[in-house]
Structure formats: structure tokens, C-alpha cells
Design a protein around this nucleic acid. Structure first.
Lengths: 240, 240
DNA sequence: ATGTTTATGTCGCGT
DNA sequence: ACGCGACGTAAACAT
């Protein structure tokens, strides 16, 4: 008897089983009770009683077959490339249910770096009075300059934004960008890192690099966004 | 009314809910049906109908509170450090169950590097004819030499094993080990990397370093292990 | 189809 | 507690 793994349906079961994995490497898990989830897109998760991550799994896009014989159910999930297979031998089913999840909502992730950028664009003087934006996501060969503008005296300001404490990598990255940028005649090129703080060991390297640092916390950025955007505050006002 | 989140128990529910996350960054997910899992160690997973990974989650070790009011259940999972919170507003419960998973099995992951080492130890001439093992996991100040032996001419061979394509780090590591090793008088010291392949940019560095490269794939290693070990083939013969 | 980069990565280990 | 590297990382994005 073969269980029809209903297309588009979510299969949830609590079972006693063993799990074998073979592929990029291999694993073995003896008998025990686990929560098994099979999703409609052909991925499978085997969860134990603790830990965020499943003890065994197979990502979406693999072929799942199930067959029962002699009172045991064997679930097999094979991923074509890279070739790897997950095999569950189910001895005992404590719970089994299938669900059709009605879920059309859009998932919105607020990338804080993007919000910091938006805050600077909306209110450039958060950097310093008189700062004007010329461009953002400006293309240079190694990547994109987050914000590009001029200060009150006409000097070019090149801003790299970091949501985390600014460390060596961002210093290196910004120095790389500078190779492809230059200030107008008689003006200076002011490289600047905008971040909530400076990483522990990076203070002296930052000083030596000639890069300026301007503190901007996510909280401050959010305040600015709130001030300018009356709509879309729902996600923000539920802080606690 | 507050649901008692039974200690050590696994809570599984299929609900219609909204999810807000705020912490390292933030996210918003409108109403829809999802599978929610709360484990005994205080982690929470919100799964949609597709994809291996949960759409929202909180790792283990966070404080989970639940309160019901006006027909809606609010689940909150707060992680102290880094401070972040996940909030579910549950409108409708399609399924709810709690389970006590009896699971004492040990999870065994076959680290392929270890199996490559075992294959070399079982059959040293997989490296080259006449190669003899003197020691493995041999202690040197910076770490452990994977395999240590002599070739047919009495030269000392120092082997570092990598399961992934050998890159710069392993070259550096092996060179480090060499500082603490020396060949017998009149003999050579032969550093060697054993790996399935050489990483993209590492070819020339490897040549310059004076380190030899011997290809050994996991598959070849497994073949050798199979040849020598008649037992423990169960995990291997169930392919497909 | 393959390679590269990101991530609310998570997790384990060493200091 | 913090920093670092590994992971069967997975997934998105570019080639």
C-alpha cells in the first residue's frame, strides 16, 4: 500500500522511526520519536524534541516516495542533484495529518541597511548639515556605492552603510571603491562609513584609513522613516 | 486564559496567524495558514506550505509566552541576547497537539574526512605503492597531522586530508605543520594534500608551495571501507 | 545547470 | 560572554 502524497498538501506526522542519510556525506539515527514534515514542494524535515534545526532533512525539489509493508512505512526522499537520499523507516505512527495551507500573504523583511539608506535619502542632513545626495547605488567596478553626494563645500562624499558594527571588511571595501572615484578639481573626496558603531578592533584601522565615521543607528533611521512615511507604520509600531 | 506550555513537550499547531519579527532586523507576514512548532527547549518555528526553512523562527533558549484574549491567541517568543522578539497573532486554530517525544538515539554523522583517513589507514597504497603509515592524528604544536608515514624510499610523508576542494587555508595549515617536522638524515620531507580536487585559484599556490597533491574522492574512500569492512554496510546498500 | 554571495543563518568550540 | 569557523548549511541571484 502506497500513501498518496497529495500534491500541494502539507503532511505532518509524529512517528517512531529510524533515519538514514546518504549523499554529500552520510548519517544514521536510531529509533526514536520525531516530528516529520513533508511539504507540497517536495521537501522533508525530521525534527527531534529540541533545537531549531531538523536532525535530518531534504530540501525542496526532491522526489518523495512512500511504501508500507509488514506494518512498517518506508519514506524515501531522493534529491537528483547532488544525488542524495534520505530514508525513514517508520515503525509507529502516533499522529498523522494533512493540511492544505491557505496562505497568500507576502513576507516582508526589513533589511535594516536598506532602511538606513532610505533614511539618509529622505533626510540627508542626518549625515551633516548641507549634505546633498547626488546618487545612490552608484555603480563602480567592484560593486555599488550606497550613497554618493556632496557636502556644503562641494566636496564629494562617498558613503558606505553598515547595519552592524563597522569592521575591517567594510573599510577594505570602501577603499576599493575610492580607486574608481575622484573629487572635482580643488575639492576633496570624503569617504565615510555610516553604521551604528565601530567594530572592536577596527578603530585604529579606521583612523589610519582616512575614512570618516558617522554613527547612525537603526532606531534613528526608523524614526526618520516614520516621520516621512505616514503609511506603512503597522510593522513598526508593534515594538516591544 | 494562558496556555500552559508544558515543559519538555512539543507543541504542534496549524493555525491562521500573522507574524511580526523584530530584532537583528524586522519582518512582517500578513494573515495566512501556517504550521507552528514550539519545542521544549524554547525554540519556535513558523513554516509555510513550501521551502525547507521556516518563514519565521526563534532559536532555542528563548522565553515563550502565550495569552488568549477576545478569541485571539498571542504567542510571543523573546530571545534575550541578541534581543529580538517574535510575535504571532493567532486568529484561528485548525489543529493543535502536544507530544512528548521519546527519543534517546544518538545521531551519527559520517564525517567524510574521517572516512578518507580510515581508507588511507586501511589501504595505505591508495596514496602510492609502498607507502607505510607511522602515525595518524600526530600532535604538532599548531594541531594534528592527519596521516604521517614513509614512502618506499624512506622519505617522510606528511598528509593533510580535505573532503572539499583543497584551497589556500589547507596549504597554509600544512606549511605550518612542516615547521615542526623533519625527515631522517639524508631523506626528504614530502608534504601532501589528499582531497577530491584542488580549489579554483589554489593550483599555482600549491605548485609553488612544494606540496604534492593526491586525489582521493569520498566515493573511492567508501569503496575501500566497504572492501575492508563487511559489517556496517546497511547504511550504504540502501541507495535509491 | 552551475557558481557565488547572503543570512534574523545556526551551532559548536576555544579563549 | 565573545569570537571564529564549519555546515549535508539553504536560498537567492548572476552566469
Amino acid at each position: 500500500m502506497v500513501i498518496g502524497l497529495e500534491a500541494r498538501r502539507l503532511l505532518v506526522m509524529v512517528v517512531s522511526c529510524t533515519v538514514e542519510y546518504s549523499g554529500r556525506t552520510g548519517s544514521h539515527l536510531g529509533e526514536g520519536e520525531r516530528l516529520v514534515i513533508v511539504k507540497g514542494d517536495g521537501c522533508i524535515l525530521v525534527h527531534r524534541g529540541r533545537d531549531y534545526q531538523p536532525v535530518n532533512w531534504q530540501p525542496s525539489g526532491c522526489i518523495i516516495q512512500a511504501q508500507a509493508s509488514n506494518g512498517t512505512l518506508v519514506l524515501k526522499a531522493v534529491r537528483p542533484s547532488p544525488l542524495e537520499s534520505l530514508t525513514l523507516v517508520v515503525k509507529d505512527v502516533q499522529f498523522l495529518g494533512t493540511f492544505l495551507l491557505q496562505d497568500d500573504a507576502e513576507f516582508i523583511l526589513h533589511a535594516s541597511e536598506e532602511e538606513m539608506q532610505r533614511a539618509i535619502i529622505l533626510q540627508p542632513d542626518v549625515i551633516e548639515p548641507g549634505f546633498k545626495i547626488l546618487d545612490f547605488e552608484k555603480k563602480v567596478p567592484p560593486g555599488f556605492v550606497d550613497v554618493y553626494g556632496v557636502d556644503s563645500e562641494g566636496n564629494t562624499v562617498v558613503i558606505e552603510i553598515k547595519k552592524d558594527p563597522a569592521g575591517f571588511p567594510v573599510i577594505k571595501q570602501l577603499l576599493e571603491y575610492l580607486k574608481y572615484l575622484q573629487a572635482p578639481p580643488g575639492k576633496k573626496l570624503r569617504p565615510m562609513i555610516v553604521a551604528p558603531s565601530i567594530a572592536k578592533g577596527a578603530q585604529s584601522a579606521l583612523a589610519k584609513s582616512g575614512i570618516e565615521f558617522k554613527q547612525l543607528t537603526l532606531q534613528k533611521a526608523v524614526e526618520i522613516l516614520q516621520k516621512y512615511a505616514r503609511s506603512d507604520q503597522q510593522a513598526l509600531k508593534s515594538w516591544l
